[in-house]
Design a binder for these strands. Structure first.
Lengths: 220, 220
DNA sequence: GAAGTGATGTCATAATCTGACATCGTCAGT
DNA sequence: ACTGACGATGTCAGATTATGACATCACTTC
C-alpha cells in the first residue's frame, strides 16, 4: 500500500489502521482484567473491532500477542553486535548489543511489569518465553561467530549476555527508582566481569591476543 | 488397589492393566507412522483400547505423553546428587547424578532416537523439552545448594551438568557403536573439565579449600 | 473502468482440553 | 452374601484454539 493510501485513512470503512497494535492493546487490557487464560481470542478481537479470524492473521497463536516485539528486539541486538567497534572482547560486543535493546524495550516499565506478571503465572507463556530466549542466545552466538569469535567463546559469551539481560531486566522491573534499563545492564555486566575476572575465563578477556581476525569473515 | 487385585487381572472387563504404558506405546507407534501433529489423541486412545477422555486423565496434555519419564529422571538425578560421597567438587556431584540417569534412560537407544526426532521437528515439543531441561537445571542447583555449595557455583555447575547431559545424549543417539550413555557422559565431562582446567573456574575446583562445610546444612 | 491487490469478514471444521455425571468391577466390613 | 465406598473408565456436552476456502470491499494500476 502506498503512503498516500495510509494518509487517506478517512474514507476506509473496512481497513482499520494499525490492526496489530490495536490487537496487542486490547489483549493487554483484557489480560489485565481477567488474566491470560480467562480471556478468549474472540474477546480480544471484539475489543479491537476485528474478528477472531483476523487475530490469527496477525499472530500465529494467542501467546504471540505478548511476544511480538521479540523479533525486532533480536534484530536490534544482532545488528548492534555486528556494528560494534572492531577490536572488542566478546562480552563487550554483546554488551553493545544489549545496550541497543534499551531503546526498543522502552514501551515503559509499566508495560514490562504487567507483561512479566502475566508470563510468570501461566505455563504456556513461560514456555514461549524460554523459546524466545533460546532463539536470542543462538542469534547472538551466530553474530559473534560472524565477527570471527571462535566457538566455545561465542556460545559462552552469548549465554552470559542472556544471563545479564535477564538479571538486569528483572531488577529494572522491580526497581522503584527511575534508573534506566541501561543502568541495570551496565551494573549487571560489571558484576559478571568482576565475578569472572578473579577466575579469568576466555569470555572476559580484553583482547584475544590481537590476532588479525578480520580477514576470516568476509560475508558469512 | 491391593497386590491381590493386580494379580487378579483376568476377570476385569473394564480395568485395563498399565493404561499409562499402553497409551505411551500407542502414541509412539502412531507418531512414528504419521508424525506427532497428524495423530490425534482420539487415535492414540483408540489404539490403546481406551477413550480420549481417559488419555487426558493420565497425561495433562498431548505433549506430556513424550515427557512422562522426565519426572522420574529428575528425581533420580537429585537423589544421586544428594547421596554422593561427601567431600566432592560441585561438578563431581553433578556427574554422580548424571551417571544415575543412565539406568533410567535405558529404554533403549531406538526409543531415544525416534523420540528426539519427533521433538526435533515440532515446535510444541521443542518448547516442552526446554521447559523440562530448565526444571532439571533448577532442581540440580537446589540439590547442590542443599549440599552446602554456595550460589554462583551451584547454578553454574547445574548449567554445566545440563550441557554435558545434552551433548552426551546427542552423541549417544548418533553413535553406531554400542557405547553406553555412561561412556559418553564421562567423555563429555572430561572434555568440559579439560576446557575449564586451563582457565580454572570455581566449578571445576577439586576441593573448595577444604572448609568444614558439613555443619552448615543440617536439614535444609 | 476493468482487472488486481490487500485487508477483512464469513462459514465450516478439526483438534485439544474440561466439567459433570453414569457405570462397573472390586474391596472392606458386617 | 449384602452393602456402601472407591477407583478406573465411559459418555456427553461444550469452550477454545487454530486453519482452510471463499466472498467482499476499498483502493490502486494500467
Amino acid at each position: 500500500m502506498s503512503v498516500a493510501a495510509i494518509a487517506n485513512m478517512g474514507r476506509m470503512a473496512r481497513w482499520k489502521p494499525n490492526a496489530r497494535g490495536r490487537l496487542e492493546q486490547a489483549a493487554l487490557e483484557l489480560f489485565r482484567e481477567r488474566g491470560y487464560a480467562r480471556t478468549t481470542v474472540e474477546e480480544i478481537a471484539a475489543r479491537a473491532g476485528l474478528t477472531e479470524r483476523t487475530f490469527f492473521r496477525y499472530f500465529p497463536d494467542k501467546r504471540e500477542v505478548l511476544f511480538w516485539g521479540s523479533g525486532a528486539l533480536q534484530k536490534t541486538i544482532v545488528d548492534a553486535i555486528a556494528g560494534a567497534p572492531e577490536p572488542a572482547a566478546p562480552l563487550d560486543a554483546v554488551a553493545a548489543g544489549l545496550e541497543a535493546t534499551a531503546s526498543v524495550l522502552q514501551r515503559g516499565r509499566e508495560y514490562a511489569r504487567t507483561r512479566q506478571a502475566l508470563i510468570a503465572d501461566n505455563a504456556e507463556l513461560r514456555e514461549r518465553e524460554l523459546i524466545k530466549l533460546r532463539s536470542l542466545a543462538t542469534a547472538i552466538a551466530d553474530a559473534l561467530r560472524r565477527r570471527g569469535i571462535p566457538e566455545p567463546a561465542a556460545s559462552l559469551a552469548a549465554e552470559a549476555g542472556i544471563a545479564i539481560l535477564k538479571v538486569a531486566y528483572e531488577r529494572w522491573i522491580g526497581d522503584n527508582k527511575p534508573r534506566s534499563l541501561s543502568h541495570h545492564l551496565r551494573e549487571s555486566l560489571d558484576e559478571l566481569k568482576a565475578l569472572t575476572a578473579s577466575t579469568s575465563t576466555a569470555i572476559g578477556r580484553s583482547h584475544p591476543a590481537r590476532v588479525t581476525r578480520r580477514r576470516r569473515q568476509a560475508r558469512a
